[in-house]
Amino acid sequence: MNNEGNKDMAHRQHVKYFMRFLNILPSSLSSHDTTRVTIAYFSVAGLDVLGSISAISLDLRSRIIEWLYRLQVHPDKETGDMSLCGFQGSSTINIRLDPDNNQFRCGHLAMTYTGLCILLALGDDLSRINRTALIQGVKALQTDEGNFSATLSGCESDMRFVYCAACISYILNDWSGFDIEKATDYVIKSIGYDYGIAQCPELESHGGTTFCALATLALTDQLDKLSEAQIDGLKRWLVYRQIDGFQGRPNKPVDTCYSFWVGASLKILNALQLTNYGSNRRYVYETQDMVVGGFSKWPDTCTDPMHTYLGLSGLSLIGESGLLEIEPRLNITKRAYEHLKCLHEQWVS
């Protein structure tokens, strides 16, 4: 690809790109079968950051919303138990099950979080969300260590799901299912000797998990629990991730998505302005497909909705024109965030 001709936003192509993913996906994406909600999130949030949420017709909008609400797991009709509540990522296991194996039809924190983000971007009022049930679903997933499992039926627990749980609690404005002290403790324990933050204590520091950790501290208003040395160290570790674009770990290749993960982390620490916007921007544009739309992690490789959305939101963080502003903690547009704030006011009164 000729990078010289690749400095401008292929806006129209990206809109088409996301619209395609909202409709139908090739069978090669079968391994995303249980996480279709996240693909819908990248597409809707992507259109939103492009300022093109109106490209979604009223009909498609209501189809997306109806489809999502069908994935909401409701409290057990017999027992009233809410521990399985949340969103499923698809209708693969959206079937009626006997009480003995009912646990297989359960919410997944990443799907609940991204599902809520889609509803916010589409301007839904969340009135059909069973807020109490979702919060109980979150509560059932926090471990003694302070982190969260993704689901009740046999999943790993790590920093990603701490972040998803924090976002859900923040969006629903209810922290009764989230032990902030325990989660903060987990985050602090996961800070490495190089001051980056890992998926779990003692693992290697990572740009994605550093974002999850810092956004959690920001959403729970716990950033002041970091020492001065930790904040200085985090800033250093994060600005060091810039090569031209950003890498996720020291001595790893640069990847478009870290323009968001690392960029948003620095934004949360009010230090993004210490990076080189020009180089960052140039790298992200090198991974743009001008013809069919989309961004990939590396130049001249396959595009995907995740890198496309994160590439765009990474550009938005550095003030790229033609893009809506991003609320870095929740990874939604400021526009969607304003809608959320209106809902919060309604819920209080």
Binding site: I24, L25, S27, R36, W67, S91, T92, I95
Partner: peptide, 23 residues
């Protein structure tokens, strides 16, 4: 038991016949 994705699904994956059969 076929997947019940509702009347108007979005982000539909065009699974292979084999995939549908097994699931």
């Amino acid at each position: 038991v076929p997947e019940d994705d509702g009347p108007n699904p979005v982000v539909v994956i065009a699974h292979s016949e084999k995939f549908e059969d097994v699931y």
